[in-house]
Design a protein around this nucleic acid. Structure first.
Lengths: 125, 125
DNA sequence: TATTGTTATACTCTATAACTATA
DNA sequence: TATAGTTATAGAGTATAACAATA
């Protein structure tokens, strides 16, 4: 049931993200970067539950579009600090607005109590 | 959040299913066949949200292991009726028991009310 | 002509191991 | 020697179209 619900949401997200020209994983990366809790590529990959080697081409694309910057970490020159640009923040905000709208439509199928419980429970699973 | 929760459950399922020698999609097929609501291969594929051409090798495997039978539909000789064998039912029951145990452990993290609401809400999403 | 099951093929996604540069 | 980022490659998963048999 979880997988089915997740697939439904992902399918609903796909056209919205495509309209903004970002893939699902790119969107996930932007979202986590906006939180600022994953400064380095490895930390970001782990936070996303993604592989560091697969993350590279995602970041390559985002960097080429000017949505993020990669700069060497002064305290450890092996590592690279990934940061959102102003464009990146704008793109994320625009995409998030569309997705929130879609999510609100889906959640409207539930009662207020159900919505509350679902949103409280999901992060704990 | 949905995708993350679904992934967690799927990861927890993987070793259990492997111990029984069935893949995730094979398990899904067995589960739907047990309900008897998807008699033909096409109906089964649609019920699983899977592609009919990908389903073939799943069924090939299940048939080779003696867990299902494929027989021509007398009313439409293009179609094949897929049915669980006694072995198939036994295999499914054994796997389901392990998975239910795992699910109970996960759900034990929630309160009774939360469990009830979650299980009522998920099928509707 | 359309549909069921099947096969083949191309394409994407994923996992793994190696390489570099730093530590 | 170990780690962060990168690259390359092989394998699994997926999508698509074509085909034979039947409707």
């Amino acid at each position: 049931m979880l997988a089915r619900a997740a697939r439904r949401i992902i399918e609903a997200e796909r056209p919205l993200l495509e309209a903004h020209g970002v893939s699902m994983w790119a969107y996930a990366a932007l979202t986590l970067l906006a939180r600022g809790s994953a400064p380095t590529q490895l930390a970001l990959a782990e936070a996303m539950g993604y592989d560091k080697s697969r993350l590279i081409k995602i970041l390559d694309g985002l960097e080429a579009e000017g949505l993020i910057t990669r700069s060497p970490d002064p305290t450890d020159r092996r590592a690279r600090v990934v940061e959102l640009t102003a464009q990146g923040r704008a793109k994320l905000a625009a995409a998030q607005a569309d997705i929130r709208r879609m999510e609100d439509e889906v959640l409207a199928e539930l009662s207020a109590d159900e919505r509350k419980t679902l949103l409280a429970v999901l992060p704990r699973l």
